[in-house]
Each structure stands twice: as C-alpha cells, then as structure tokens.
Amino acid sequence: MANILIIDDSMTMRQMVNFTISAAGHKVTEAANADEALQSAQSQRFDLVISDVNMPGRSGIELVAELRKLPDYKFTPILLLTTESQPEMKNKGRAAGATGWIVKPFDPDALLSVLRKVLPAN
C-alpha cells in the first residue's frame, strides 16, 4: 500500500482519482492547489504525487519543480494528470522533473497500471 498525494483544483477530479486509487488499496491525501500540496508534502512523506497542470496560483509544472527541490522528493515519482496534450507542455513538465504525463480523461485501469510501473516494488 502506497501513500499518494493528489492535487487538482476540481473536486470531481480529486474524487475520481481518489476513488480509483483507494479502491486499489492505497492511502490517498488530497490537495486543491500547489500551496496545500507543498504543505502536505513537507508534513509527511508520500510515495507518489499526481498533480493537475492548470490550477489557480502555481501550476502543476511549477509544483513539480518546487517538489524536486525538497530532498525527500528528489526521486519520488510525480505524474501530471491534465487535459493538456501539447508536446511543448509535456516538455516543460519533463524539464521540471515530472515522471510521467497522463491526459484526462484517464482510464482507471490504465492509471493503476502506470502506478504499478512507477511505484517502488515494495
């Protein structure tokens, strides 16, 4: 069971991601924006972070860059879940340190499959 942080300004999206991931037995913490996410990330250690890109305040890409500055999150898998699919945006995400890019709407099975790939084996 992994400890996962999900960030999205849309409560519906958080619900759907939370439902999919918690049904697979993982523990989920939600944040509505980058500031909340950074606060949570500093108060506890997450095994995986899934973030939206377009959010009020700091974007998901900026959040990735901020998280990568934290020693605990240097190698933590961070996935960006967004409606954006332009290559230049993906490149920005990759440059910021994101582990992967998932385009909304996500398929629950596909999301869980990605989680299995990026989460540590134990």
């Binding site: 699919s85 332009q86 993906k90 995400g93 992967g100 890019w101 996500f106 596909a110 990605v114 790939k117």
Partner: peptide
C-alpha cells in the same frame, strides 16, 4: 489559448 492537439494519452518520461 490551449491547442486541441491530441497525442499519446499516457507518457512516462
């Protein structure tokens, strides 16, 4: 504006 270009839905870097 946000373009509507569709590419691969999931991509691991």
């Amino acid at each position: 504006g946000r373009g509507a270009t569709q590419s691969v839905d999931i991509e691991l870097f």
